[in-house]
Nucleic acid binder design. Structure first.
Lengths: 133, 133
DNA sequence: CTCTAAAACGTTATATTATTACATACTGTT
DNA sequence: AACAGTATGTAATAATATAACGTTTTAGAG
């Protein structure tokens, strides 16, 4: 018998905000999201941040820390939400989630010299994308 | 003849702020820095942020993106300021710069499938440190 | 030395990002 | 129905960061 997964049905606000992020071609910032969902009744920052926190927690979206922006996870409902790798173009700011199993495994297995056991990591690569170089 | 290095003499504000960060046992946030250097005549946020930007640029300090905090570089005046790796304890928030040549080389050589050439990366590992686990 | 361009500085105001605090409502058990 | 846990709505405010000025200092070039 395979491991059961909780359905992770999204609440109303979570669904609205996830839909917006998911159909966006670029990472969205919290206040950009807020402006775009006000017509749907989400009027205040805490509503947005609470939904974002939850969506990050369950792996539906990721936060690009260096940009304070959020993207939908592209990796099959994100089994690897605890192991994120992004590529960021320093010119046009286009951001992609890097899916490299070898890299992810390598990093997931990494242990430092202080005997610290890592549960999670976030890696952000910067450079110039094809178009901008 | 060996390659010449610019001295990178710090300006007054840069030196004050670097000294503070360098002697701190933990990452410092911009406004914590501001409060701590007001007696030295640095009174406004832009003065702090400008110095921080410069110090990051020349590799004397690094920004921990997930914490909006700054630490002094521990790697011999930081030849590798474009390739940073940190370990962060999720409980006590202690942060260390990870110096693993193999890891750094592996990541520096990494190229993604979109033909993007990376110039820089930042990796943040999260877990529980020895004490907290 | 003097001129100049770049870097650094000082200051005010404001923009952007994120949280606290508290009251209310919904959801899924027992 | 009663309860616990999650989600919601709202107002206020905290924390982080930048814009836009004008001035001063620094480091080289001539």
């Amino acid at each position: 018998m395979t491991k059961m997964h909780k359905e992770n049905i999204l609440s109303k606000n979570q669904q609205i905000i996830f839909n917006l992020i998911n159909k966006s071609s670029e990472p969205l910032k919290a206040y950009t999201i807020l402006f775009n969902v006000q017509k749907k009744g989400i009027k205040a920052p805490p509503q947005v941040y609470r939904a974002l926190d939850k969506l990050v927690e369950i792996g539906k979206i990721h936060k690009i820390e260096s940009k304070n922006a959020f993207v939908a996870c592209k990796n099959s409902n994100c089994e690897i939400s605890k192991a994120t790798v992004f590529s960021i173009c320093e010119n046009c700011e286009i951001i992609d989630e890097v899916s490299d199993v070898k890299l992810s495994k390598y990093l997931s297995k990494f242990n430092d010299k202080n005997g610290m056991k890592f549960k999670r990591f976030n890696l952000e690569f910067f450079g110039l994308c094809k178009k901008c170089k």
